[in-house]
């Protein structure tokens, strides 16, 4: 029991406690919009679309920004990415970066 508590405390301290829990939580529902095509928590069932789990937050964010800003061509992610604000894109990116 003591051992478990100290492990928990250590984890909380490392993660910054409630602040982390809150941000992961707010990104989770937003990020779940990606699950249908990219798999639950960003781990696809079949290959073909990007695996998002475990990519760095900056990598996911910059790719989404690039899709959003495309002025030529027409693909589904170019349209889809425009559905989210900058803050929302950051929350989504952070969520997937935190997945295994």
């Amino acid at each position: 029991m003591i051992k478990k508590t100290s492990a928990c405390l250590a984890a909380l301290m490392l993660l910054g406690g409630p602040a982390f829990a809150q941000s992961a939580d707010s990104g989770r529902l937003l990020a779940s919009n990606c699950f249908q095509c990219h798999g639950t928590n960003g781990r696809p069932s079949v290959s073909g679309f990007d695996r998002l789990a475990g990519s760095s937050s900056s990598e996911i964010y910059s790719e989404l920004k690039e899709m959003q800003g495309k002025t030529v061509g027409n693909d589904i992610m170019k349209v889809h990415a425009r559905g989210y604000t900058d803050t929302q894109l950051r929350a989504i990116s952070a969520y997937f970066a935190a997945q295994r």
């Binding site: 249908q36 095509c37 696809p44 079949v46 073909g48």
Partner: peptide, 8 residues
């Protein structure tokens, strides 16, 4: 790909 991931 869409269909299989959606069903998954």
């Amino acid at each position: 790909v869409w269909f299989n991931n959606l069903m998954g």
